[in-house]
Design a protein around this nucleic acid. Structure first.
Lengths: 213, 213
DNA sequence: TTTTCAATCCCACAAATGTGGGAGAGGTTG
DNA sequence: CAACCTCTCCCACATTTGTGGGATTGAAAA
């Protein structure tokens, strides 16, 4: 069963060469190619591709906005961003909007085909240079200080609720305890973390738990 | 000029097979292989490898702590985590501690060599499955809502300070205005963001500015 | 010009938060 | 057993934060 691929790319030459590439290789099927985000949004739901190759720089609506709308309609679809830009902001925006991978355009054909295969099997292919930008995001936020290590399990639960923005009353209800107890826990937590305000405690929590929200 | 590689891996068989692989291929040079993090920390500064292959699951000190100490001593070194685990927490901790890439162990030899090359040339090779975990981190935090768009420039400045955990007094000093003005701004900001507490506002800010902080 | 709006500040009141004290129940460890 | 820790709750007080009502200035828009 070949992988159904749709292309969204405004440059006719690139669009053509991608189509030809996909037609000429076993295991792939090109089910559509579109010159604009608007056209893609109209046609793709009917084409039911497994993977979409999406240029970022499209005439009216950007590829990023197109991903957002496409994923809203078809959550299961895998979108690979295909671009010449390696701007960090673009990368993060595309990823948060639901893109599965991010490939730079001058990637060799065999690598591109491999990327499509990987995206289809649940992977997230990224050009090494792009991946580095993503990794730098984690480097930049600095190592976890593990300051929340000294907290007890219960205290960690309280802190987690606190980091969601709940009031003491709401935390108490969520954990099935009294507000006074929440206040007591927080007091102890603040002491251990060497902070004096709610926001500081939340920031320390977020630093120690990158994945949490 | 071959790429100098050091290995940190406690399983003697895997360590040996990696060493043999690197010795047998042009363009690579194995400058050291170590069975423990402690041994690696002692020896690697003298071996001056370009790239370190680091197992995560080491006997005493974990590979993650080893990366942290290694990067502290030799900031320019590139560390590739090599592991069987694809636990999200492990991945994020390794990356924040300074690892450049993250490869699962059952990767084919030619892919592994390519990963080492990529790491050496400034890329960040990640197994597709690992990359997907990283991408999911961005998906999970959801698309930026752009709710802070309606804020004025000044209000955005205030919110940014707020998100650092400062007291109103400190924000006022930082911006050279009165506390009353800060309170007024915050009041307006809360109205626009439809929140009623400091923490909720900070969370919205962080959602709109992933890279911030 | 009139109107609108952002930014600045003041006041007052209510609500939420931070900090100190104490205390009892249950569990673990030496 | 005694010492210690965790979790639970109560009280009191100070501080910080949230909300409403004003008011002035200056710049930009109608």
């Amino acid at each position: 069963m070949p992988i159904a691929v749709a292309i969204v790319e405004d440059d006719p030459r690139i669009r053509e060469s991608l189509t030809v590439l996909l037609r000429g290789v076993d295991g792939f099927r090109c089910v559509g190619s579109h010159a604009s985000a608007e056209e893609a949004l109209r046609a793709i739901p009917a084409e039911k591709p497994d993977v979409v190759l999406m240029d970022i720089n499209l005439p009216h609506m950007s590829g990023i906005d197109c991903v957002a709308q496409l994923k809203a309609k078809l959550p299961a679809i895998q979108v690979l961003m295909l671009t010449v830009y390696d701007d960090s902001d673009m990368i993060f925006r595309a990823l948060t909007e639901g893109a599965s991978g991010y490939i730079i355009k001058r990637t060799a054909p065999d690598k591109l085909l491999e990327a499509i295969r990987e995206a289809h099997t649940g992977g997230s292919p990224m050009s090494p240079h792009i991946a580095r930008k993503v990794v730098q995001y984690f480097h930049q936020r600095g190592p976890a200080r593990h300051e929340t290590e000294s907290l007890t399990d219960r205290e960690r639960e309280v802190l987690e609720q606190l980091a969601k923005g709940y009031l003491y009353k709401e935390i108490a209800d969520a954990l099935g305890i009294g507000v006074e107890t929440v206040r007591r826990h927080l007091s102890n937590i603040y002491g251990k973390l060497h902070v004096h305000t709610r926001t500081e405690a939340v920031l320390k929590h977020l630093q120690d738990h990158p994945a949490a929200r």
